[in-house]
Design a protein around this nucleic acid. Sequence first.
DNA 1: AACCCATTTCCTGGTT
DNA 2: GAACCAGGAAATGGGT
Length: 342
Amino acid sequence: MAATCEISNVFSNYFSTMYSSEDPTLASVPAAATFGADDLVLALGSPQMPLEGPEKASWSGEQPQLWSKAQVLDWISYQVEKHKYDASTIDLSRCDMDGAALCRCAPEELRLVFGPLGDQLYAQLWDLTSSFPDELSWIMELLEKDSMTLQEPLGDQGPFDQGSPFAQEMLEDCRQPSPFYPGSFSAGAPSPGSSDVSTADGFPDYKKGDLKHGKRKRGRPRKLSKESRGCLEGTKSKHAPRGTHLWEFIRDILINPELNEGLMKWENRQEGVFKFLRSEAVAQLWGQKKKNSSMTYEKLSRAMRYYYKREILERVDGRRLVYKFGKNSSGWQEEEVVGRRN
DNA sequence: AACCCATTTCCTGGTT
DNA sequence: GAACCAGGAAATGGGT
């Protein structure tokens, strides 16, 4: 198995394969006023950073839910080292999972694979994932702005209004013993704070007309130059977080009942059929996540349609704004969601 | 550097 | 007519 080879390498070379940080100020936690998602993930890592000083592990700057397989292996190997555990007793073939899969594991499953270390892993994961309460603040902040600026009439039933019970629920939820998906919808989401130009003023001026006139180039708009990005996001990890695919973003909104309400809803949970209720709002949220101020439902839906071919989504004919998860999607079934919460 | 992947953007034409 | 759907074409940016 490739995964077995891979993990073996990781285990034996863990410390030599750690990323070296580009920013020695990682350990410092920014002031609340400028606290962004990137900062959060760093702050989270700090109490249990694998190393002191400028070096840090590949996984340490990201939410566990977003870890790639390699990062999971990194983390496991770190835990093995840390607890002086005998790695030879671990069934390496069962470590071939990404962060999302890892987070879905119940304690018993972890114990099954990792033996006594499983409990440690579970506890550590709990700590890591529950250290993101401010991620929720970000969502709320975002949606507060959202409710002010979205061109789509939102009505008053939106779940994200200021003072909505949602806020409290979510914050509390974060501290309950289902820590691994406290707000996975925001997973890896960009911060509204300092580093995100598109969010600095809330939702940016999105107007379809802007695109129609003045013929812009096709394709994705250029991002900030490396230099300016370095300035703003100097603490970001080298690799773009996984788990940031559109369908996962959609799924994560849906599997969180609080977030689901108002933005999207299940039409048939068993079948994986769902509907956009506030299509433009979801699109703008997606745009926020991707630091793309000009995202629209039109564009988002084009990306959704590409999923048909890959069978991540199935067509639902004749029903507007309705999609269905396909066989190549995962993590939305009730059992899976329940599993990840226990 | 070249390639691949997952979008993003733009577009035309069709449907609700 | 607006909003949405379908899908081609081309471009982008991140990862390998």
